[in-house]
């Protein structure tokens, strides 16, 4: 089976770097910040694969580079180095490193083939625009033009994510945190993405609301078989959703494996600490 998403040596440095830390940033032993020039390794030499229909977990404490990784994949940040390939399933398609494509082409790929849900719904939604309008915006970017089709699709997605359709003309600002998260999920799924990126989507929600959002994600995943990258510091979320998991620290991947293996037989010092810190 061919991987759907392939990432090699993805690196993001914040800062100009110096003779001590270039090209890849300070060594992992020194942490993530160069002692001489202050350049921070947001993401250092990260390589990973996501296979069709698979859910990959990314764990690590705050500041470990999880969100930076997701934002690099979503082209919100410019990578310092690395390669990203998205296999669209066509055998004859040219293999193109997406990081080398024009900003226009990258936006196009993002609009057509990716979806993202942020921890903070303000990042993913326009709060004063109707929920249906939020979804329409994404569909327009993905190339949809027929207004009644767009409205039909928006209604279908909101229903699917358990938002009453009679509220589709209301702006998300009127909604509770859990509902806003579900509108974000509806929007992220509207273009039938090949890859769905979930960045701490249940962090900060009440337990019962969290459960409902997780159940929704799990059901949608099974139904649509969409590949996902799930970023979370909550090992329970990772165990529930992900077949495989990578562990990040100081912007680097320190361990990767089957989720049950990473959680039950962690090898890296940091992973052992993380697993033993669980409540």
């Amino acid at each position: 089976m061919k991987p759907l998403l392939e990432i090699h040596g993805l690196t993001k440095l914040f800062g100009s770097g110096c003779g001590h830390c270039l090209p890849g940033g300070v060594s992992p032993e020194e942490g993530n910040r160069c002692g001489r020039c202050g350049t921070v390794v947001g993401c250092g030499d990260v390589s990973l694969m996501v296979y069709p229909g698979e859910v990959l977990g990314v764990v690590g404490e705050s500041g470990s580079g999880k969100s930076t990784l997701v934002r690099l994949i979503h082209f919100e940040l410019d990578a310092t180095a690395g390669e990203i390939y998205l296999n669209n399933g066509k055998e004859d398609a040219a293999r193109e490193n997406l990081l080398m494509q024009s900003p226009f082409r990258r936006r196009q790929i993002r609009s057509r083939h990716m979806g993202i849900v942020y921890q903070n719904p303000w990042l993913g939604l326009r709060m004063q625009v109707s929920s249906g309008g939020n979804i329409a915006e994404k569909l327009l970017a993905a190339g949809w033009r027929n207004v009644s089709e767009i409205r039909k699709r928006a209604a279908f997605l909101l229903e699917r994510t358990e938002i009453p359709v009679n509220r589709m003309d209301e702006p998300p600002a009127n909604f509770s945190g859990g509902m806003q998260q579900r509108v974000q999920i509806a929007k992220a799924l509207s273009n039938n993405p090949q890859v769905l990126l979930l960045d701490e989507v249940t962090t900060g929600l009440d337990l019962s609301v969290q459960a409902r959002v997780l159940d929704l994600i799990r059901n949608l995943q099974r139904e649509l078989a969409v590949a996902m990258i799930v970023v979370s510091h909550d090992l329970g979320v990772i165990r529930l959703l992900c077949q495989r998991t990578i562990v990040m620290r100081h912007g680097r991947v320190v361990e990767s494996g089957l989720t049950d293996q990473v959680l039950e037989d962690p090898r890296h010092e940091y992973t052992q600490l993380l697993v033993s810190s669980q409540l």
Binding site: G257, L258, D260, Q261, E264, D265, R267
Partner: peptide
């Protein structure tokens, strides 16, 4: 058993 199943390496 866990080594066979892959839960342990």
């Amino acid at each position: 058993l866990k080594c066979i199943y892959g839960t342990y390496l």
